[in-house]
């Protein structure tokens, strides 16, 4: 085990996969000598050279479109889109090309690529640089969607995403980049896609949270525990495929469910989890499901407004108290 930041864990995952497999390469804007806009790729260009850590021009459409072509011909590209809010630019390449190629060709074509994108608010970057776009991709058949909340998960999931034979949209939360945690050193350490993790056990209420909301839910759990309320915190880690069994098992135990994400609420990933539990676990529930999300508005710039906008631990605490 080593104590690494989330960003370092991601970098280690990429380095290990590039060492293991010469078909793995990185491309994106400022991922080379600049080390990535959030420093995630760091010194990889020095270690692997410009051929395998490719600085692109500002060209999101070509980054994703060429990743599709590279993946179809035997490479395993890891492409970085600088902010999740920029994913709208190469949308055709994601949902019409990467996602549908296998199906449209009747299973002939394989598109093993990873698209990394920093997600989320909290750094005063305003609406276009604070976007949370996971639900757009959850909706698209053919894509897998991953969203780690800890350094260990970041490493294990990114390695699995690189090894997967399908296009994976890999969300990283900007606030989490500097969070530290214990990360296994084993080069074969991977976390399977589609396996949720119970981050904290509890008997009174289940909180399913994604990304930074996992951190907030765990903070809320600490405070609630002081008052004798034990919440169970589940991180799905991969939104597609979604591990509904782990969630349903927990709801069976607690009878109460809160789903929390930093997304705007309407049509979010929380909507999908709600629908699944309402259909498959209705009679496990003692009361209606509650969802904690950001308001249906773009992310505001002013710190005073952004603070109100982001669903922090307090919102989780008060929602739990309304239910238990």
């Amino acid at each position: 085990m080593s104590k690494l930041t989330y960003a370092e864990a991601l970098r280690e995952a990429m380095a290990e996969e590039m060492e293991r497999d010469k078909s793995v390469f990185i491309m994106g804007e400022d991922v080379g000598v600049f080390g990535g806009c959030f420093g995630v790729t760091g010194d990889l260009v020095e270690r692997f050279g410009e051929d395998r850590v490719r600085d692109t021009p500002i060209t999101e459409t070509a980054i994703v479109g060429s990743a599709v072509g590279a993946a179809m011909t035997g490479s395993r590209p890891i492409a970085e889109i600088m902010f999740a809010g920029f994913l709208g630019v190469p949308m055709d390449e994601i949902f019409n090309q990467a996602a549908k190629m296998c199906y449209m060709t009747g299973g002939q074509a394989k598109v093993p690529m990873v698209l990394r994108a920093p997600n989320g608010a909290g750094i005063g970057a305003a609406a276009q640089h604070s976007e949370r776009t996971e639900a757009w991709f959850v909706h698209v058949p053919g894509l897998k969607v991953v969203y780690p909340s800890t350094p260990a998960d970041a490493k294990g999931l990114l390695k699995s995403a690189v090894r997967d034979d399908n296009p994976v949209i890999f969300f990283e939360h900007k606030i989490l980049y500097n969070h530290k945690g214990e990360v296994p050193d084993d080069k074969d350490f991977t976390i399977p896609l589609g396996k949720a993790d119970v981050k904290r056990e509890g008997k009174d209420l289940t909180v399913v949270a994604t990304g930074i909301l996992v951190t907030y839910a765990l903070e809320a759990a600490e405070k609630l525990a002081e008052e004798g309320i034990e919440i169970e915190v589940i991180d799905p880690r991969t939104l597609v495929p979604f591990d509904k069994e782990t969630v349903l098992d927990s709801v069976e135990k607690t009878g109460k469910l809160i789903i929390a994400s930093e997304e705007t609420k309407r049509g979010s990933f929380t909507s999908e989890v709600s629908a699944v539990v309402a259909k498959e676990g209705l009679f496990l529930l003692e009361q209606p499901i509650k969802r904690i999300c950001a308001p249906d508005a773009p992310v505001p710039f002013s710190s005073a407004l952004e603070k109100v906008y982001i669903p922090g631990p307090e919102k989780i605490i008060s929602a739990v108290k309304e239910m238990v």
Partner: peptide
């Protein structure tokens, strides 16, 4: 066009 460029990267 971008898919072709990507195939060129693999080469």
């Amino acid at each position: 066009l971008p898919i072709a460029a990507g195939s060129g990267i693999t080469s």
